[in-house]
Design a binder for these strands. Structure first.
Lengths: 239, 239
DNA sequence: CCAATAGTGTCTATAAGACAGTATTTC
DNA sequence: GAAATACTGTCTTATAGACACTATTGG
């Protein structure tokens, strides 16, 4: 091997995209945001939010991948401020995956608060239930595969990170937190066993008691908690 | 968002590379293969094996990322046949990471049998101990970061895959397998506790007894085992 | 006999799953 | 009182770590 010694120009260049699997949890249902394509190819099918990465020939070379992912996420959700959970998951670069030209897509996984679910729904932007509807949607390019890996990434990470707290209000009850776990893992955690798990979050200092109580339905009011200040920081990493 | 509707040409294009973190275990020591750069930039420093991905403007669009990774791996190791462990780990695309031009590097993690360690060592190709020497090597570009993430990937995966069996002979003793785990995790597993873990591999059908015994040093001969046929297949996935 | 590894077994701690029962609210 | 959720607790199982002991080889 001759590392990096060959002039790159003879190898050709490729367009670079970022595609974001934007997810949230509403009513214990994991939702994913998709956009309807209007142009060819795959006109009329659903696609992940995404865009080409700006690349320039001058000295600054264009925008970072992470910056591009943030930009697309803000544009798709209308959110201001930086998102706390935006992680790179995989890069898709098979030849022919875009019929027009060679395209490399760096896929990302993002979580947004459930409030967005109510706001953002029209003819071109729609939220789909990840567990049930997703397999039946006709999707553009290889986005069905990307979506699958994005959901898988979320399921693998939820047990070893604080990402679940991105999907509950700043103060929350044990039941609300469990509901988020239920939705992501697509199973019903036993409320009694989950509470034991929550107890360990408490003794380890991950969560702390908040003031007041909350009662949602027709049942006993529950204590409210919050993520401890020291953990209440951003978790993402760029590239 | 306008999904994929904008003509890509105005966004510019980038060179695409694959970089491989090639690792093996020799004498309970995790080793990584590096190549010495001769050309500028970073002349004289060490770099991961890698190359530009061939991209063409015609209909076939060039080679797949996975194919490129396989090609680089074969070229760097001189191995024939397809490698069983070659997994994509992360994509590095920060602007300015290559001073010459914009380059996106898709990083991969590969395991090769220990025999290669003896063969491949000269002025330009060298194996370094991952646990001790690595922090002290002057590396090209952001390859130190890529290497770090590659080692981390291996450590995370070894407990939930059959990857350790890539680094022992076709038939092996419990001690030989434990030695591989020791090297990858950079800790000493208790031989008695590890044997219990091995027992579970046995009862679950992951490994099975082979004929004969083996004794390496000056001690009691040990039973030999093999990975069960049903698991003895390739594990990698392309993109 | 000594050194070294193979192989068997015990005790403890942690975490997850199944499940019993009481407490407090709305209707 | 009925329904629903909050909260406390028990029993069992799986896994990992610390550690004691015997077995078989080479020197």
């Amino acid at each position: 091997m001759t590392p990096s010694s060959t002039p790159p120009s003879i190898h050709g260049q490729s367009a670079i995209r970022v595609e974001i699997v934007v997810m949230t949890v509403v009513n214990s249902d994991l939702k994913v945001m998709l956009e309807k394509r209007i142009d060819q190819p795959f006109s009329g099918t659903w696609a992940l939010p995404g865009d080409f990465v700006s690349i320039s020939a001058d000295k600054n070379q264009g925008e970072d991948l992470f910056t591009a992912a943030q930009r697309v996420l803000k544009s798709a959700t209308g959110m201001t401020g930086t998102n706390r959970f935006l992680e790179q998951i995989y890069t898709f670069g098979r030849a022919g995956r875009d019929p027009r030209m060679r395209v490399i897509s760096v896929a990302w996984c993002a979580l947004v608060p459930p409030e967005l679910f109510d706001m953002q729904t029209d003819a071109t932007v729609q939220w789909f239930s990840a567990s049930e509807e997703t397999p039946w949607i006709r999707m553009a390019f290889d986005h069905a595969e990307i979506l699958e890996i994005g959901i898988q990434h979320l399921r693998n990470r939820v047990d070893h990170s604080t990402l679940a707290f991105e999907l509950v209000p700043p103060t929350f009850t044990v039941g609300e937190l469990r509901t988020v776990y239920d939705a992501i893992k697509s199973k019903r955690y036993d409320p009694r066993n989950f509470r034991r798990r929550f107890q360990r979050m408490l003794t380890s200092g991950l969560v702390e008691e908040a003031s007041g109580k909350r009662h949602l339905g027709k049942s006993r009011p529950a204590k409210v908690w919050r993520l401890s200040e020291q953990f209440n920081e951003k978790v993402s990493k760029g590239s």
